[in-house]
């Protein structure tokens, strides 16, 4: 009985749906505020994203008559389920995640792809030309960033010698953070570049380029379904940041300062916020690339960084 209750608590409240969406939306608000200040303007208040999502939730639910309604309606829910599950597999409060699975790095890589696939399905099923173009672009982008993303993870796996995220975090607790290992610096850079593509931020916001294809795959979405997509997107930001934090920054560490026990979740929040702010800076200093340029960039420069890191880990003792 306790196990069932704790499972429900984990998946719905902490670190699952409620916690993840609240923090994800907060990070999106911080991102928008910082963006505003970088552009020398005031920007929206930090809680703006809550207001936006709340307002969208209260709107009328519309399914376009040209859309494949089943796929169109279910896609955001599956994506939400997938990102929430990743949240359960990440070390949030301590090195031990809420849900343990064997070889969970592979599970995380797999689950992180589900929102992308749902986005494509949603775009293709929406029945609009912009949705189709956006989905087609996202397919290309998926094939470009995913390779680099996985190679960077393999570099970490080769360094630690385990496919288990818990083991990676435990290894860092004993031997120091992996970011301090010079051989893994290129892998970290490659990871952040591919995260930029995964989260569709400038210069890789090609699948939802506003001036070209309105909002890409999400063009036809509105109301509560769009709100769910926004939550998915924001949780995905948090999840990818948490994943990078766990791989390179030692995951959540509980500190004791002057007798106070600071829980690991505070450390998790600080580390993820730093990574989100790095992506915010990156998205404000560049123009959007074309899809062919993005593909070329990923398969040359970013892939080179990841391979270099892997080689260094394997060759240099």
């Amino acid at each position: 009985m306790m196990e069932v209750l704790s499972f429900f608590f984990n998946s719905l409240v902490f670190p699952g749906l409620l916690f993840a969406s609240l923090i994800g939306l907060l990070y999106a608000g911080i991102d928008r505020k910082v963006t505003g200040h970088m552009q020398h303007r005031i920007g929206p208040p930090i809680w703006q994203e809550y207001l936006d999502v709340g307002k969208l939730m209260g709107k009328e639910d519309i399914t376009p008559s040209a859309a494949q309604s089943l796929v169109f309606n279910v896609a955001p829910l599956i994506a939400l389920g997938a990102v929430t599950t990743v949240m359960l597999l990440l070390p949030v409060n301590s090195a031990q995640p809420a849900l343990t699975a064997v070889a969970d790095l592979i599970v995380i890589i797999y689950l992180l792809n589900i929102p992308a696939i749902c986005l494509m399905l949603g775009g293709y099923s929406s029945g609009g030309p912009f949705g189709s173009v956006g989905a087609a672009r996202y397919v290309v982008q998926l094939f470009s960033y995913e390779f680099v993303f996985i190679l960077a993870i393999i570099a970490v796996i080769a360094r630690v010698g385990s496919l288990d995220l818990t083991a990676v975090v435990g290894y860092q607790a004993q031997r120091g953070w992996l970011i301090l290992d010079l051989r893994l610096i290129p892998a970290l850079i490659a990871m952040i570049i591919s995260a930029q593509g995964k989260l569709m931020r400038v210069p890789f916001d090609i699948p939802e380029a506003e001036t070209e294809i309105v909002h890409g795959a999400l063009t036809e979405y509105s109301g509560p379904k769009l709100a769910i997509w926004r939550i998915v997107y924001n949780i995905e930001t948090l999840v990818v940041a948490g994943f990078i934090a766990a791989l390179f920054l030692g995951g959540p560490v509980a500190y004791t300062i002057g007798g106070f026990q600071i829980p690991g979740v505070a450390d998790f929040l600080i580390k993820t916020l730093i990574i989100v702010l790095i992506t915010t800076i990156l998205r404000n200093i560049m123009a959007r690339l074309r899809i062919d340029q993005a593909l070329k960039f990923y398969w040359t420069f970013a892939a080179f960084l990841a391979v270099l890191s892997l080689m260094l880990v394997l060759v240099v003792p």
Partner: peptide
Amino acid sequence: MPRILPQVLRNLFRKPFTVKY
């Protein structure tokens, strides 16, 4: 290194140009 980066980081710590009308 993108040329606009110093400007962007400087703006982060400046008072916004917008007038709160």
